[in-house]
C-alpha cells in the first residue's frame, strides 16, 4: 500500500504538472487571445495543447485509481504536491521568481504531505503503538 500511494501520488503530480506547463505554453503560443476560429486553430495547431489533454486524462485515471483505497480528505490535500512542482518548474522554464513567501508555502505543503504519509503508514500498521 505504501508503494501504491508513493507511486500513485508521484504519477498524479507528473500528469498535473504536464497539464499546467502545457497550458501555459499553449496559451502563450496562441496569442493574441481572441474569440475567433483563427485563435482556436492556433491553439489546436501547436503540440502543447495535446500535452495538456494527455496531462488531464492521465491525472483523471490516476486519481480514480488512488481513490479506490485513499480517503478523500487526506488524498485531496496530498494532490496539492503539484503546486510545489509547478512553482519550481516555472522558475526554470518561465523565469518566474521565488519569493520568500512562496518558498515558505512550498515547505508547509511538503511538511503537510509528509505528515499525511506518516499518518497513512500508521493506519496500515495496527501493531504500532497509538500515541
Amino acid at each position: 500500500m505504501k508503494r501504491f500511494y508513493l507511486f500513485g501520488f508521484l504519477l498524479l503530480m507528473g500528469f498535473d504538472t504536464l497539464a499546467q506547463i502545457s497550458f501555459k505554453y499553449a496559451g502563450t503560443q496562441a496569442l493574441p487571445v481572441e474569440a475567433s476560429l483563427a485563435w482556436l486553430l492556433r491553439v489546436f495547431g501547436q503540440p502543447w495543447v495535446y500535452g495538456a489533454v494527455v496531462g488531464y486524462v492521465g491525472a483523471f485515471f490516476t486519481w480514480m485509481a488512488l481513490l479506490k483505497h485513499a480517503p478523500i480528505g487526506p488524498a485531496f490535500a496530498a494532490s496539492h504536491l503539484e503546486v510545489v512542482s509547478v512553482m519550481l518548474l516555472s522558475v526554470w522554464l518561465f523565469d518566474e521568481h521565488l519569493t520568500a513567501a512562496r518558498v515558505l508555502g512550498a515547505i508547509a505543503i511538503l511538511a503537510g504531505i509528509a505528515c499525511l504519509g506518516l499518518a497513512e503508514s500508521r493506519e496500515h500498521a495496527p501493531e504500532a503503538a497509538v500515541i
Binding site: 480517503p71 478523500i72 480528505g73 487526506p74 490535500a77 496530498a78 496539492h80 503546486v83 512553482m87 519569493t99 520568500a100 513567501a101 512562496r102 515558505l104 508555502g105 512550498a106 515547505i107 508547509a108 505543503i109 511538503l110 511538511a111 503537510g112 504531505i113 509528509a114 505528515c115 499525511l116 506518516l118 499518518a119 500508521r122 493506519e123
Partner: peptide, 24 residues
C-alpha cells in the same frame, strides 16, 4: 474518514501552504 491528529495536522499544513503561496 477518521481524522487523526496527524491527518488534521497534515491537511492544515497543506492548506496553510497553498494559502501562503497565494499570498506570496
Amino acid at each position: 474518514e477518521r481524522l487523526t491528529r496527524l491527518r488534521v495536522a497534515g491537511i492544515a499544513l497543506v492548506t496553510l501552504g497553498v494559502a501562503i503561496v497565494g499570498l506570496g
